[in-house]
Design a protein around this nucleic acid. Sequence first.
DNA 1: TGTCAACGGCACGTGCCGTGCCGTTACAGT
DNA 2: ACTGTAACGGCACGGCACGTGCCGTTGACA
Lengths: 193, 193
Amino acid sequence: MSDDRRTRATDRTNAIMRTTLELAQEVGYAKLSIEGVAARSGVGKHTVYRRWPSKGALFLDAVLTSGEPALDYPDTGDIVADLRQQIHAAVDLLGQPPLGPLYRALVGEAQHDPMVAAALNERFIRPQADRTLARLRSAQQRGQISSDFDLDVAMAILSGPLYFQFLITQEPLTHEYVDRVLEALLGGMTPRS
Amino acid sequence: MSDDRRTRATDRTNAIMRTTLELAQEVGYAKLSIEGVAARSGVGKHTVYRRWPSKGALFLDAVLTSGEPALDYPDTGDIVADLRQQIHAAVDLLGQPPLGPLYRALVGEAQHDPMVAAALNERFIRPQADRTLARLRSAQQRGQISSDFDLDVAMAILSGPLYFQFLITQEPLTHEYVDRVLEALLGGMTPRS
DNA sequence: TGTCAACGGCACGTGCCGTGCCGTTACAGT
DNA sequence: ACTGTAACGGCACGGCACGTGCCGTTGACA
């Protein structure tokens, strides 16, 4: 069998990605270099370039492969409780160390490299959004959400303010803030009669 | 007077920032270099480094200085119309070429450089948010917004989804999308009796 | 007229890029 | 058992931009 071959190649691939995360945490993404990753991994530069075309692609793969804990939605029937639990978990995972700074750098790189942006969307953002939408649709069918409410926008309102705080103002993401957004979204801004 | 001195220095500063924007639009922020800016400006590298400590600082200054058209809020008394007009204007300015890609790169750099992030917040984000908050507060006092509604969150819900679309999914920002967010925010997600 | 700060031009050492080449290793097919 | 082959580690290369020196020039000011 050539399984040994494949296994050893996969091991090396994983080792390189692990080293990438280590180095990124130590020196920051800006000072991360393929040369440094190869050196610490005890690997030739070719071995890295054979697998990833750029620092951004390597970093994306490293971050997304490390943190695939399947943020799946619960469906207890209570849409508000489910959303809360899910978003709290996401914020805990991506909003603070160790993954927080790495994820921030990843989104930053996506602003400079369209390939990273596309891959980030396909591999993480879109699947996550789809799960949220599915959960919202289920709630709408049960009458917990107005039947004419724009669910795509609902998803954006749940994610957007968190990303705004995470990327722009760069203040810490708290459960309390998530709850405030949730409450505002539920009730609406205009006075109720 | 030493006004001549100061004037010529200011002229050079502006010329360098203009060149920075030109080059950034031609080759993209990733390939922008201080060396290149100095060369095209017909200026020594010292003259650039004396003014800005890094490529990020120079770029931030160039972008924010170029686009200070004072996005000020109208107050016609109709909060919805005023918000719409204001956000449409912001989206037209920052959401598409020529300023759109530059602003995207600026936010991207802010993810790698805390100094850029801080300066972006102080010079652009916070003032803009403050103006939005002031306008919302005025509407709340007139009873157009529920008296207990969280205005900070309202601001985040107006900005967040747009930044999410702009930075993450990177789909074009349209007036129609702004209107959908606005409508969702006004009405609330839960069914009204 | 002399002083002095800012300047353009040039050169330097450094770090990383991406790509060659070379000899080695370990599996594959015969 | 023998040989072909593909991935490998190590090394070196040219290229580029970094940030910082130095040098001679310019032009306003005292």
